[in-house]
Simulated assay, not measured.
Amino acid sequence: MFTKKVYNNNIVMAVDENDNEVILAGKGVAYGLKKGDVIDRSKVEKRFELKKDTSPRFGELIQDIPLDYVIISEEIIAYIKANSDKKINDSIYITLTDHIVNSIERIKMGIDFDMTLLLNVKTLYKEEFKLALHAVDMLRDYFKIPLSDDEANFITLHIVNSQFEDNMMEMYTITSILEKITSIVKNRFNIDIENNYNYDRFMTHCRFFVQRVINQEHFEQNSALNYTLLEATKDQLPKQMDCVNEIVEYVEKNYGYVTSDDEKMYLLFHLGRLTDQ
């Protein structure tokens, strides 16, 4: 491998044997190197093969970050990728690494962060929250600091954000809408959300529904058929249909999104399974 750009003594962008750009991290791996020099592979501790639009930005980010932050962040992201059944976008290397650095430095300075607005994250994104809790454990072990489980809330959002390729501001908006939908359902029905497969299915569908709301993308699969099914089903599930209508009215009033009959049918279907006693 040959040197393409030196970020600091521990970080270098290289060109591998397949002519691909990679970022390499390791103690002293780039010391004394200049463009075109051969890299000592024995000094490489971590290798990052990222998309071309992500790799330079990641390199710029980590050039001012201590090597130990880079190493633990890569290990956490590798764990998340290995244990998630969803595609994780390369953007997580930038967003989560930056967040980890800021969080650890904040905690070392004794600065607390108000997590009140994120308390429902663990119920909205159950699988991602489990991964985030493990990430918190890894950070505790690595830095030997008393890191609160609350930190998993933010890490969860970064994981979800990397699945949808949104920006974090959109992720907060999506989470806010999901919280409102959850509130509407809970106000109308007495449901147990813990270890509830139907709740998890409902929330998964709602996540994609809200994604379409934010992007103003309308879901249409078989409108004529679903209109007929909707008309037949809403009389059998009047309370659930009222709940769907409240959700639909909320997103239309606040986000200008007109929900199709297809979407209403799927919301009603999942809500019916969730509230079937």
Rank of each mutant, 00 (worst) to 15 (best):
N245P: 01
M241S: 12
N254W: 06
N254C: 07
T259C: 06
Q240S: 11
K253N: 03
L230Q: 11
V248F: 14
Y257F: 15
T259H: 12
P238F: 03
V251G: 08
C243W: 12
T259E: 03
V251T: 02
V258Q: 09
E231G: 08
T259Y: 15
L229T: 00
M241F: 12
Y257E: 05
I247E: 02
A232S: 06
D242E: 10
D242G: 07
Y257I: 15
Y250D: 02
V248E: 10
Q240E: 12
N245C: 03
V251E: 03
K234S: 13
T228F: 10
Y250E: 00
A232T: 02
G256Q: 11
Q236D: 07
K234W: 05
E246V: 09
D242N: 07
Y250R: 00
G256P: 03
N254V: 03
E252G: 01
V244M: 12
T228G: 08
C243M: 12
V258P: 01
T233K: 14
E249F: 15
K239W: 04
M241W: 08
K239V: 14
D242H: 09
P238E: 01
L229W: 13
K239E: 06
Q236S: 08
C243D: 02
D242C: 03
I247H: 01
K234D: 06
V244Q: 07
V258N: 09
G256C: 10
T233A: 11
Y257L: 15
K253A: 01
P238S: 04
E231H: 14
Y250N: 02
L229S: 00
V244I: 15
K253I: 00
T228H: 07
A232K: 11
A232E: 09
E249Q: 07
Y257K: 10
L230P: 02
E246S: 07
T259I: 14
Y257P: 02
T228C: 09
Q236P: 00
M241G: 05
C243P: 00
V251M: 14
Y257Q: 08
N254E: 11
V244L: 13
K253E: 02
E249Y: 15
C243V: 13
C243I: 13
T233E: 05
N254A: 08
Y250A: 07
M241Q: 05
V251C: 10
E246L: 13
L230E: 09
K253S: 01
V244T: 12
E231R: 11
Q240C: 12
I247S: 03
N254F: 09
E249P: 00
L237A: 10
E252K: 12
G256H: 14
T228I: 08
P238W: 03
V244W: 15
T259P: 00
K239Q: 06
L237H: 11
K253V: 00
T259F: 15
E249I: 14
T233H: 04
Q240V: 14
Y250K: 02
G256I: 08
K239I: 15
M241H: 04
E246K: 06
T233W: 03
